[in-house]
């Protein structure tokens, strides 16, 4: 479900699913937790292939943020349409830094 790539000490995690919903959220959370527990604490989540997230998926993202802790960074790149709408609607856009591109998200976290 996830593919990863290390850039400037920032882990770029690309989600290869079109939907992060209640059926996919547990696996998503498990894979993300493995990335975090392997020592990565600056993560860019590339959601450009994702066209739908429900509250279970959003909850999984929040859970990752909590696991990273206050010194970690989790930025979101490439959220559009229904995905970007969900972040705004739930005011999670105050929690996750939303970037149009992976490049700008990596730049922010590696600064």
């Amino acid at each position: 479900m996830l593919s990863t790539d290390l850039r400037n000490n920032v882990l770029v995690v690309r989600v290869a699913e079109k939907r992060i919903d209640a059926s996919k959220a547990p696996a998503f959370k498990d894979e993300m937790t493995k990335c975090i527990d392997s020592g990565q604490n600056q993560i860019v989540l590339d959601l450009s292939s994702v066209d739908f997230i429900d509250s279970s998926g959003l909850g999984a993202l929040v859970s990752c943020l909590k696991r990273l802790g206050p010194r970690g960074g989790l930025a979101v790149a490439g959220a559009t349409g229904a995905v970007s709408r969900l972040f705004t609607l739930t005011r999670m856009d105050r929690v996750f830094a939303l970037h149009a591109t992976v490049d700008s998200a990596v730049e922010q976290l590696s600064a």
Partner: peptide, 21 residues
């Protein structure tokens, strides 16, 4: 559920958002 304090990590909801949405 969305009137949380974003500076308090523990306050950010992970569930209980469905009906509100």
């Amino acid at each position: 559920p969305f009137s949380f304090d974003e500076t308090e990590l523990a306050d950010i909801p992970e569930s209980g958002m469905g009906l509100a949405l």
